[in-house]
Design a protein around this nucleic acid. Sequence first.
DNA 1: CCTTGACCTCAAGTGAACTTGAAGTTGCAG
DNA 2: CTGCAACTTCAAGTTCACTTGAGGTCAAGG
Lengths: 155, 155
Amino acid sequence: MGDLDIADVARRSGVPASALRFYEEKGLIASIGRRGLKRLFDPSILERLTLIALGRAAGFSLREIAAMFAPDGRPRIDRRKLAAKAETLDRTIREMTALRDGLRHAAVCPARSHLECPSFRRLLRAAKAGVIRAPQISARKAKRRAARRSFKQPD
Amino acid sequence: MGDLDIADVARRSGVPASALRFYEEKGLIASIGRRGLKRLFDPSILERLTLIALGRAAGFSLREIAAMFAPDGRPRIDRRKLAAKAETLDRTIREMTALRDGLRHAAVCPARSHLECPSFRRLLRAAKAGVIRAPQISARKAKRRAARRSFKQPD
DNA sequence: CCTTGACCTCAAGTGAACTTGAAGTTGCAG
DNA sequence: CTGCAACTTCAAGTTCACTTGAGGTCAAGG
């Protein structure tokens, strides 16, 4: 009745059907049954997907996220892991902040070459100090992702 | 004389020799010549590698970084691109900060289930609002990377 | 009842950034 | 001078998170 087919879920969540099947295969989500061949999802899937998006944004891998849902289904998220991730996140934030400031300066810096700018060299020294990790998201993917990003899920 | 072979560069930069060859192939670095078969690098390669690490950390792809070095070799970095990247970075920082705070709360939240915690639900709503992008760095790679991370390059 | 389009499965492809392996060559310590 | 560790090339493999394609099934509208 209130159940959703995969297209509904895709539309309401912004997650492509192919990704939903993929998530199911990986155990991140489960359909509540089938109508013929077609998967049926409970509306609560939308909340679950939000949770998954959240985890991804926090830097968890799908594997890690899957582990956050107890085998019985509901989220039993390890609070220690959460705290640990918050810490990592915090480190990353500090790194990126330094980086952002460095970039901002470099963008307006009057020095001939960036290598001649003391501020830029400071940034380099910071990078050298090993302060830096790589985020890594491909340009094309990021673009497609951005184009798709509506994820409105009314509720 | 002061020239470095690939092992020296690897040791002093923390970048594996295989990655250095890869970078050369992609045009991110260049050897100054060969001794027999063996590549020789100018010590300035170390600064270049720091620059590359910096770019990676800022979220530039290798392709983008390569484009930042003029064909003649020295960095001619587009200041507008820099500013743009600083903006993206800033957005990401804000997202991650929200996320970090959410996670921190969730870690100490007394609610039975995270889904019952008002604060966590607020976080979910924020995520739903599309505030969220994914950083994406694999666990295994991150671990290997961390183990390797010394990058001391004594100047 | 029949068509059709939305769904299905399974396999293979993608792209980024490297790593690994096999097979060959060689600078240089002893 | 010789042996071998360390380099070389080139191809293929790896991980992650999906997407794409081929070929098949079937629920529902006309």
